[in-house]
C-alpha cells in the first residue's frame, strides 16, 4: 500500500515498505546488468567470417576465399544498393565479422554507417585491417573535377560507384581481398594466392572474349540509353556509348519533357537499346522501346550469390544478354 504520510523531506533516507512495486521494478535493471556481466559471445568458427555489403563483392570473396571463408551478403542482387533497409538483423553477421567488404564511394552511405557503429566490432571499423573499401583499388571514373552541388542531382563526390559491372575492376578488388585475407589468416596465404590465380584466369578469359565480341559491333549498334547513370564502367569495358539517361539528373525521377528529349536523341542517333538495372521502374522504358522499335536489357544488379552464382558466371551472362540485344 502506498504511504503518503511519510516525512516531507525527499532527501531523507528511503522508507521501508513504501512503494514496493516501484522498488521491485528497479530490480529489472539489476537483472539486465547481471546478464551483461555473465554472457560473452565467442563465435567459435575456424573459417574467416566475411561480410560484403553487395552480392558481387560477396561472390568475389567466395571466389578467392573458397572453403576458408564464410561469406554473407547484406544487400540482395535485385535490390537497389543505394536504398537498402539497414535491417537490425545485419548486425548479427557484422558483429561477428573478421572482414567487411564495402563498395565505397558513398554507395552505402544511406544505410551502412549506423549499422557499422552499432555492430560494436572494432575489427571492421574504417582504418582497421578488417575493413576493405573496394573503390580504393580500382580506376575510378566520373570523378568530379570541379566543384559539385546537389543541384546537379545525387552526385557521388568520389566518383561513380558502380564499378563492379566491369570485370577488370572486379579483378583488382579480388586481388585486394586476397591480400587482406592473407593478412587476417596468414596460415593460408598460399592457398589464397592459388585461388586468386585460378579466378583471375577464368575471369580474364570471359572478359577478353566479351571485349573482342563487342569490338566487332558497328559503331551505330554500340550506343545505348540508360535509366540511371550507373553503367559507365560497363560501357568503358565493352567500348559502348551512353547517349542519354532517363533520369534528368542522377537520382531525380524522369519527367515528360526530358523523356521527349531522350526520344529525340535516340531517333537522331538511331539507338534502339535501353539498358537498366532490374531494380529501376520499367514503364517508361517500355514505352520508349515501343516508340523506337527497340528493346530493353534488364541488367542484373548483382550475382545471385545466395543461389550459388559466381562472379564469372554473372559477368558472362550479363554481357551475353547485352550482346544479344545490341547485335539484333
Amino acid at each position: 500500500m502506498l504511504d503518503s504520510s511519510s516525512s516531507p523531506s525527499r532527501t531523507a533516507r528511503p522508507r521501508e515498505g513504501a512503494s514496493n512495486w516501484l522498488r521491485a521494478s528497479n530490480g529489472l535493471g539489476a537483472v539486465a546488468i547481471a546478464c551483461l556481466l555473465l554472457v560473452h559471445p565467442t563465435p567459435a568458427s575456424a573459417k574467416v567470417q566475411v561480410v560484403a555489403t553487395l552480392p558481387d563483392l560477396a561472390a568475389l570473396a567466395e571466389a578467392v576465399g573458397g572453403d576458408l571463408v564464410e561469406v554473407t551478403a547484406l544487400a540482395k542482387p535485385n535490390q537497389d544498393p543505394h536504398y537498402v533497409d539497414g535491417r537490425p538483423s545485419f548486425l548479427i553477421p557484422l558483429s561477428r565479422a573478421d572482414l567487411l567488404l564495402v563498395n565505397g564511394l558513398d554507395l552505402e552511405v544511406g544505410w551502412l554507417p549506423p549499422l557499422l557503429t552499432n555492430a560494436r566490432n572494432a575489427k571492421i571499423m574504417p582504418g582497421a585491417s578488417g575493413y576493405l573499401d573496394g573503390s580504393l583499388v580500382i580506376h575510378r571514373l566520373e570523378v568530379p573535377n570541379s566543384r559539385i552541388d546537389r543541384a546537379m542531382g545525387d552526385i557521388h563526390p568520389g566518383g561513380n560507384p558502380h564499378y563492379l559491372y566491369d570485370p577488370r575492376a572486379g579483378l583488382l578488388v579480388a586481388e585486394a581481398i586476397a591480400e587482406r585475407l592473407s593478412t587476417i589468416d596468414r596460415d593460408h596465404e598460399a592457398l589464397y594466392r592459388t585461388q586468386l590465380a585460378a579466378f583471375s584466369k577464368a575471369l580474364t578469359e570471359v572478359s577478353d572474349a566479351a571485349m573482342r565480341k563487342f569490338a566487332e559491333l558497328p559503331e551505330a549498334k554500340r550506343q545505348l540509353v540508360v535509366y540511371h547513370q550507373s553503367l559507365v564502367y560497363l560501357f568503358d569495358w565493352l567500348g559502348l556509348k551512353e547517349i542519354a539517361a532517363l533520369e534528368p539528373k542522377p537520382g531525380i525521377a524522369p519527367n515528360p519533357s526530358h523523356v521527349a528529349d531522350v526520344l529525340a536523341t535516340m531517333r537522331k542517333a538511331g539507338a534502339r537499346v535501353i539498358i537498366q538495372e532490374e531494380f529501376y521502374p520499367r514503364r517508361l522504358s517500355d514505352t520508349l522501346a515501343k516508340m523506337t522499335h527497340g528493346e530493353i536489357v534488364n541488367l542484373r544488379g548483382g550475382a545471385r550469390f545466395e543461389e550459388g552464382e559466381t562472379y564469372v558466371q554473372r559477368i558472362e551472362r550479363s554481357s551475353e544478354a547485352l550482346y544479344h540485344a545490341l547485335s539484333q
Partner: peptide
C-alpha cells in the same frame, strides 16, 4: 547508457 548486443542468432539488444 550501456547496451548489449546479445550473441543470440537473432537481433536481441538490451540497454540500460
Amino acid at each position: 547508457e550501456l547496451s548489449w548486443l546479445s550473441p543470440l542468432p537473432w537481433y536481441f539488444e538490451v540497454s540500460l
